[in-house]
Design a protein around this nucleic acid. Sequence first.
DNA 1: GCCGTTTTCGGCCCGACTGTTTTCAGTCG
Length: 589
Amino acid sequence: MHLTNKDIAHIFRSIAAAYLLTGVNRFRTIAYQKAADTVEQMTREVYDFWENGKLNEIEGIGPTISQHLDEHFKDPAHSYLTKQLQLVPSTVYELMKAPGIGPKKAFKLVSHFKLLDPSTVVREVKKLAEDDRISGLESFGRKSQDEIIESLEIFERRNGQNDRMSLPTAYAMSEQILQYLKKNPHVQHIDTLGSLRRMVATIGDIDIAVVADKKDAANIIEYFINYPQVLTIEGKGPEKASIITKGGWRVDLRVIEMRQYGSMLQYFTGSKAHNIKLREFALKKGYSLNEFGIKQVKDKNNISAFATEEKFYAFLGLQWVPPEIREGTDEIKLAAVKRLPDLIRLEDVKGEFHVHSSFNIEPSHDLGADTFGKMISLAKTLQYEYLGFSEHNPSQSGHSSAQIINLIKKKQSEIKKTALKNSFTCFNSLEVDISPDGSLAIPDEAIRYLDMMIVSIHSSFRMKKDEMTKRILKGLSYPKVKILGHPTGRLLSKREEIDADWDAIFAFAKEKNIALEINSWPERLDLPDMMAKTAIKNGNKLILGTDAHAAYQMNNMFYGVAVARRAWAMKSDIINTKSSEEIKKWIGA
DNA sequence: GCCGTTTTCGGCCCGACTGTTTTCAGTCG
């Protein structure tokens, strides 16, 4: 098993800590921290980049770290990285995983008490704190000691658990907190910011900004920390506070006056990488940015305030940057020359293909809950022009070839009738399993009764990379295959992506005019945003599907659009923004 | 150690909050 991005990020972060503690040049330290941040956020494996000799394409990883990584992949036992890690005891890195304990505190504890066993160090430190043996140490006091106990308890409880939640979970949670805060009469305006506003696939914490008069800020902070779901209060000042909810999630609140709200929106939306690049960009123009406004570097008293984000960006000579692409890649450079892409919008979507009706095709996996008619009627309210019904293929074990063909024929005629009755364009599709050997799970003779197929992997997820690649390429080579469904098979926080040669698969799909799906099911969001971005760069066409197994779930399209926007997709990159006439051409119907 | 539409050398984001301190270091986002 090779090193995952998480492992590599941990190595970089640990080396940054070791450098900090041993007094290595501060900017070398920062370089490793930056590299750790980058790797942590990547959706493709660093290992794959290395295999393809493309380590140098990763921003933030330059020639030196590339070389160290190369060496480490080849011979981890004797690599430079391993040697640097040994500069300080590994127990330091273990302790640092607990919130509130950084490199300095960890190192002091480890050296003073000679703690060298990483498997027991957390328990040992907790015991020392409980026995009141830490409060006497220099720069530690009783409060820090209590804080350590609390922090290590949180760490132990969290250990091995998910530290991120899905978008809908985060939405629901932020909605509740917003409802609560809005009851405070001093709250003039409120927004959820951070990764939730940027629509990242998984959310680590909830960030909320409130507009209020300065004199009311204290009242609001007090009100916030009395939220009924509060477990602990992480911090509390005159204008910001942090709580941990009973569910174990962190919520940050900032209170600001209306005249400065634009800069706070910008600051609190992030991402961290975007903010750093934006501040670097501003510095070159002689400005210093913070959450309260823009200062002249030469005249610190000359501060401009901004009520809106648009004005904030405009002051710097930039186009307003959509939150979904504020990830610190090229967005600032392009905003400076007014060349940001016109990202796809929800209202651009004119139909979809990945919906499962209740038509009983005796499928291999879950049947949908609603009839063709019910799904069509929702599609009409969504202003769609067409729907493709893609139930799972009939189970192979329970049916002969003839029976499968009969079921598909039956569905075909049923769909024709329904389309006529509802005056709505419908396609007879199926979501067909790609078997482990790459063959499709329906007989070849059945294909002629279909308008098109989505092909997907629903079993044997852990095949070796080259076998998996062959499997998918074979699956895609059947006639009438128009969509590769949820390509990576990931389930957020549950199942890893399959291992495959995506360059080869993307190239083949492009050649065959097959669309790669962005599956909008909130647990999937698959293709992942950054892979979708790569696909678009390669010239692939994408398609948005909800995988709805009930009509109301077609409303999840919203999440797919968010992924597409994070992938910098324009309307022209997404197949199902086309009219039904163009779609018919694409399908060859 | 990284990076480049004022630079291949000389810069490198910014501030809040906390605890242990009488002015600041550590941690976090």
